[in-house]
């Protein structure tokens, strides 16, 4: 499946282990989780993990959004966070906000959509792992819209 990332992602040949296999070899730097796997278990290891793949069994199954935010926000994971499975261009903006930075997608036009995705919405209401300042904060700082 074609792989997209905003800049300098790991190559598709970089092989993640399934969570069960990875638990046997937790020194391996890449792991692929099902959206029911307990993401909290990665906490002691996030410093040396370089790739975590999260799965969307269907595009409408949104559990991996929460997994992504926990990895990025709560556990401070800095490596590559890849979305796989039902990954469609109209979800990119949400995925970026939750901390994903690479994507496997079969959808035509996905690369072009990824290039546009960060400019689709110039306003956000929630503080999340992408670090963008939400409208509530910009208002307090009296910052004009273009400042973000």
């Amino acid at each position: 499946m074609p792989l997209y990332s905003e800049a300098g992602g790991l190559p598709a040949t970089y092989v993640p282990l399934s969570f069960a296999d990875w638990q046997q070899r937790p020194e391996w730097p890449a792991v692929a989780l099902a959206n029911t796997d307990p993401v909290e278990d990665l906490a002691p290891h996030v410093g040396r993990l370089r790739l975590i793949v999260l799965d969307f069994p269907k595009f409408s199954d949104g559990r991996a959004y929460s997994q992504a935010r926990l990895l990025r926000g709560r556990m401070g994971y800095r490596g590559e966070l890849r979305a796989t499975g039902g990954v469609l261009q109209d979800q990119i903006a949400f995925m970026l906000r939750c901390g994903f930075d690479s994507f496997e997608s079969e959808q035509k036009g996905f690369g072009e959509a990824l290039a546009r995705a960060r400019t689709l919405f110039s306003v956000v209401y929630q503080p999340t792992e992408d670090g963008r300042a939400p409208a509530s904060r910009l208002r307090l700082e009296n910052r004009p819209l273009a400042a973000d």
Partner: peptide, 13 residues
């Protein structure tokens, strides 16, 4: 309303 609008984590509940 503001918090829930286009909430990136909770659009595919």
């Amino acid at each position: 309303r503001q918090w829930s609008t286009l909430h990136p984590e909770f659009t595919f509940l």
